[in-house]
């Protein structure tokens, strides 16, 4: 199977990553080559194999529902690019 044609700008938008035209130009052949390499996996029959998401699977990891100390507000806001009234400030979302 040949590598799929990758629409860089479409994927970059999904990733919320603005690329310059020069970056997109350079990435396109590199990604094509890497995706082509990924198709090596097509050689294997995996139709009856279960997927592995974690090497040490643990299920239903619970903790007691107790209130404990968390990051203080000043600590949480310490690295905020913009803040107002003790909150993170972002550009307007709704008109």
């Amino acid at each position: 199977m040949a590598a799929d044609e990758i629409d860089i700008n479409y994927v970059a938008n999904l990733a919320r990553l603005q690329l310059t035209p020069a970056e997109a130009e350079k990435l396109k052949p590199q990604l094509g080559q890497i995706l082509h390499y990924f198709h090596k996996l097509d050689q294997l029959d995996v139709s009856r194999i279960e997927p592995t998401a974690h090497a040490m699977p643990r299920v239903n990891v619970m903790r007691p529902d107790q209130v404990t100390a968390s990051l203080s507000q000043p600590d949480a806001l310490r690295n905020a690019p913009a803040q107002i009234n003790g909150l993170f400030m972002v550009p307007k979302i709704v008109e």
Partner: peptide, 10 residues
């Protein structure tokens, strides 16, 4: 597919 091959490698 990669997750399935991961099973084989494991």
């Amino acid at each position: 597919r990669a997750q399935k091959v991961r099973t084989l490698i494991r």
